[in-house]
Design a protein around this nucleic acid. Sequence first.
DNA 1: CTCATTAATGCAAACGATTGCAGCTCCGTC
DNA 2: GACGGAGCTGCAATCGTTTGCATTAATGAG
Lengths: 341, 341
Amino acid sequence: MAVTIRDVARASGVHVSTVSRTFSAPHLVNAETRNRVLAVAEQLGYRPNRAARGLTTGRTHNLGLIVADIANPFFPPLIKAAQAHARARDYHVFVADTDEDPRVEEELIRAFTKQVDGVLLCAPRLGDRTLAKLRRQVPFVLVNRRLDGLPAVLMDVGHGARLAVEHLAGLGHRRLALLSGPEGSWNSRRIRESAADAAAAAGAELTVIGPNSPTEQGGQIAAPEVARAAVTGVLAYNDLVAIGLVEGLAELGVRVPDDVSVVGVDDIMQARLNRPKLTTVAMPTVAAGRTAVDMLLQLVGTEEPGPAALTVLETTLVVRESTAAAPVEERPARLPSGEVT
Amino acid sequence: MAVTIRDVARASGVHVSTVSRTFSAPHLVNAETRNRVLAVAEQLGYRPNRAARGLTTGRTHNLGLIVADIANPFFPPLIKAAQAHARARDYHVFVADTDEDPRVEEELIRAFTKQVDGVLLCAPRLGDRTLAKLRRQVPFVLVNRRLDGLPAVLMDVGHGARLAVEHLAGLGHRRLALLSGPEGSWNSRRIRESAADAAAAAGAELTVIGPNSPTEQGGQIAAPEVARAAVTGVLAYNDLVAIGLVEGLAELGVRVPDDVSVVGVDDIMQARLNRPKLTTVAMPTVAAGRTAVDMLLQLVGTEEPGPAALTVLETTLVVRESTAAAPVEERPARLPSGEVT
DNA sequence: CTCATTAATGCAAACGATTGCAGCTCCGTC
DNA sequence: GACGGAGCTGCAATCGTTTGCATTAATGAG
């Protein structure tokens, strides 16, 4: 068996409470005693049992972080920022992956309950009702999802989508496609709405394709449909989809950006590495990770909730090589405000 | 406060032990009572406190998984495989990232202690002595690291490195470079040793460069040095480094594979997406994740350790577009077994 | 009808820590 | 020389569950 506080107490001739205090309130115990206890503890290899401590104090000093897909390069920077930030505040972050499955997501939240002080839910796929119910199990902060009464940090992807569409329109593209994201995704809806608005304002036509899986595969699969739709500009739900699409189009003999322009969302590392380098909407993931931790810690620190905080972070458009002026044949055919049958 | 077993007991007019049993040993309680308790529990929203349960049973049904860098695309498939496999066995996997810092690694192992039943250590950066000490805190299984007396699953990257060097030599390359990995990495040493052996056997010269950071940046930074070394074939510690190198060489006007051939290690998703598609040593990450979980569960399930198991998984060479025949000017200048000053 | 058996439940002691309260010693003060 | 206070330490209850044992009631056998 592991060595417990009791073993240390016995071996150093003091009561367990003194040992406990040596670790959790050192100033309350005589320097001499403290040193003796520490020495014995060290020698016995004693480590406080954090689970047991959590039972009495109600604080585990752990945070949970749930993402839909660790393999999506969008998340690691956020995760790392959150971990580093939390560690500096003497908290540990445990990460879990839901595999895009809402049921797994719920199960994981339940599993985290009482083992962490709070959880960061990144782009949850769960429905509003379930989330509202779950919030009573464990405090949480949402990332990229808005729900009344719950603290959240949002990246204003709608703004980014608008910029993207305006960028394409400015390049002369009039027939655009949107490769949409997962049903449950709040981000996906924001992108769709803003892109539609911006397209309408710019007098461009916008076709919605999908949703397919929010991965390269999803993008690759969408390629034939994109080609068939005869669009010249595409906004993809995220960079992975965009990269997959470029790949898929290449196989169909469609060149990017010569024949069609593609813009992604997220600005993951691969966007820079891709050929052509991807034009994309950059997300402030690091800031989001830090902010979310701060909000969560503030939430678990206080007895009463206070008003649910909401932080909105800005997104920007990064123009690289995957977008270019629309092909000439396409332009003269339609009026700027052209309607379609 | 959260609703506890006691609340349920009171509300349903039975003793706490009966409530406990309805959840952990249903067959011991009368069907009628059980249903009543379950109904009350449901209505009150009772959830067992897993930390408290772990205190008495000694089992948390959680596993920890520690990696050096979540952002490295090598890990996600392994992580996902481990999570899925564990979930099927009613275990949850919590992941933590050490940021390549051995101190953080140790801290995380300590943090996991008693909160999980065992931990999977992926390519730990910790020294042998520390690992040997830590193993008494919590059972663990090593991945890609060998240490006497500790169960491990290894991917035979040495074999892969040998294949890679033979592949390059077979294409006529005589001057090779190895971009080495982090000091503490067991894999890195294996690669270096095997590559050196294979190079010697093939009569090729092998220059070791680095170590730099095992990331794209690291590869990019190494590019000038590679160019200066006037080699025609490079084996990189991993795909990220290889991809960064290709990028860095391009900026220097050196073409891959025309001027120099590059092979990576890991076969991450980006290897297929890169232009040129990367020739690389494929690692059986999914199998590794599953096997590691199995070994760990077997380890925590039994009272006495038994012999430390060791599983070695095979690696293969995937030839794509980043390797080609050595440039012609280079070949006639030297004998196959050419020595250098 | 009695007795052994079984099924269902209650009782209370753990698990490993924390913490309010009380007690003791020692010191300085008046 | 009694008193008040400070500084340490011990006592025991508590956190939410599990589980070996005792208890009770119901069942079946002889």
